[in-house]
């Protein structure tokens, strides 16, 4: 993937991850739609990397149309699901002042936030009885991420640059706005009865 790319200091990467078990195909299509691509171009993105997982056919189809649309202004590439996690890609995003667009699975959210990069989370509205939407709303309210809609991502993409400057630190620092914030290690010690 990225090693074959031409990488300059001006390069800006948008990384999209769609979940391991059942790839969120509507998100792949949405990111590669003309309105999203326009928003990415406007915000100065030069690279788009999509982790499509098992939905490679969806990605291949949508990306060929998208490539024709952007005419080489954005390099578009896809990767499979990596069981070892997203560290390599997220580090790249961090270096390239980039953006992560993710499905609303808590694992991916947690992983992305540790890299202090702007994150757009897109709840999968077609799933019944899940708490993705709830979590995304609560996280957005706390200023950790932006919530995007699968029907139209362009608004969230345009907001992401300004969001970079005001995003809250995650995990939250142990003091300040939370009344009684403790680390889990401290809670364990307290329960066992360790004294410092």
């Amino acid at each position: 993937m990225a090693t074959a790319w031409e990488w300059t200091p001006e390069s800006k990467l948008c990384f999209v991850t769609t979940g391991a078990t059942a790839p969120f195909t509507a998100l792949i299509e949405s990111v590669l739609s003309p309105s999203s691509l326009e928003a990415l171009l406007e915000s100065g993105f030069t690279h788009l990397l999509v982790q499509h997982g098992s939905a490679k056919d969806v990605f291949t189809k949508a990306s060929s149309i998208a490539r024709a649309h952007v005419q080489g202004q954005i390099v578009i590439d896809g990767i499979d699901f990596n069981p070892d996690g997203l560290q390599a890609q997220l580090r790249l995003v961090q270096q390239a002042k980039g953006l992560v667009i993710s499905h609303a699975g808590s694992g991916s959210i947690l992983e992305a936030l540790r890299y202090q990069v702007p994150l757009i989370v897109v709840p999968n509205t077609s799933l019944l009885d899940n708490h993705q939407e709830e979590l995304a709303v609560a996280m957005e309210r706390s200023g950790y991420l932006l919530r995007g809609h699968v029907e139209d991502l362009s608004l969230a993409i345009r907001k992401s640059e300004e969001f970079r400057t005001r995003m809250s630190q995650f995990p939250p620092v142990t003091s300040g706005q939370h009344r009684e914030t403790k680390s889990f290690a401290a809670i364990m010690d307290e329960t066992v009865g360790f004294m410092d």
Partner: peptide
Amino acid sequence: SKAQLRGRPTTARVLVVLGSGGHTHEMFAL
């Protein structure tokens, strides 16, 4: 209940129950 142990332990054994992907991920973050 906090610190109900008799005496003051110096070391402890801990048992961690792991679950599927998401649970395990969160557990190691904890």
